[in-house]
Design a protein around this nucleic acid. Structure first.
Lengths: 143, 143
DNA sequence: TTGACAAATGCAAATGGCTTGCATATACTA
DNA sequence: TAGTATATGCAAGCCATTTGCATTTGTCAA
């Protein structure tokens, strides 16, 4: 029943973005909502396999691009040679990526707004988006 | 003669990083120094061709990785599906990438130090590096 | 200056993320 | 419930990047 509610929510959301609500898409949305860090296409495919939902990689890549274009998702780059994706609805924040263990922590955005204002004023450049990730050693790996 | 001096400088620099100074490497360093924005491997190969220096792509990719490991270069991602590289010696700054015309402008780093301090204090995360690029519309493309 | 050795290179093949063309299937709307 | 735009599957292909291996070339000590 919980799933039904969830699926219903996503259905509405996808409708709002003018994209069709297919089983694969609903499952992907559910996965993205439940994930506490940006995921890559392989993680999505694995999840779908676990859920016994068949999907071709090409379909997922196309889905990701469509969702990014619609503003549903953001692309995130952790310098892994592949793209990760995150729900835009998760709000503005950045990531602390541990280069030792791979752990990812969220950190709220507290300086970018003013930075972007500054850019608009000083450079007359209209910022649409930015990417900011921090790389280093997490607390756990320091000891 | 100017070139000799330049080459000599790079030779010393490379020596400092404990890597061998080959003709290709000296040329690449010269190119990176003269460039006012991060360059990709193809741009490097084109430059070398113009300078009549033969080099295999694999060699350049290996060179880039070695230089990044040694701290000579930084990797930069402009969301183009390929990596750009920039001399670390060019200092801390970020880029304004126009998604319309592709123009790249530098902007000095004015908020990251405090942000990183905050991260160290609040999250006990030891920041080694970060990536920050802004995407939007440049002044030229706004009119 | 030379000889030895580690490091760098060239070439070819392979990898991997991502895209594309086309035929088919499916979700939405009237 | 039929019609249509959209989404999907599959196969082929693209492009950035890596890798194995044989060969060459800096570097440094003698």
């Amino acid at each position: 029943m919980f799933n039904l509610i969830k699926n219903h929510d996503c259905r509405q959301e996808l409708k709002g973005f003018e994209v069709k609500a297919t089983p694969a898409r609903l499952a992907v949305m559910k996965f993205l909502e439940s994930s506490n860090q940006p995921v890559d296409v392989n993680a999505i495919l694995d999840y779908l396999t676990r859920e016994s939902i068949h999907a071709d990689p090409a379909t997922i890549f196309r889905m990701m691009n469509a969702f990014v274009d619609k503003g549903i998702l953001k692309k995130i780059d952790f310098r892994e040679g592949k793209t990760r994706y995150e729900l835009s609805s998760k709000g503005d924040h950045h990531h602390l990526v541990c280069t030792n263990c791979g752990n990812v922590e969220r950190i709220e955005d507290s300086h970018m707004k003013e930075f972007e204002e500054e850019i608009k004023k000083k450079k007359k450049f209209l910022v649409k988006s930015h990417s900011l990730e921090f790389f280093g050693i997490c607390q756990n790996c320091q000891s």
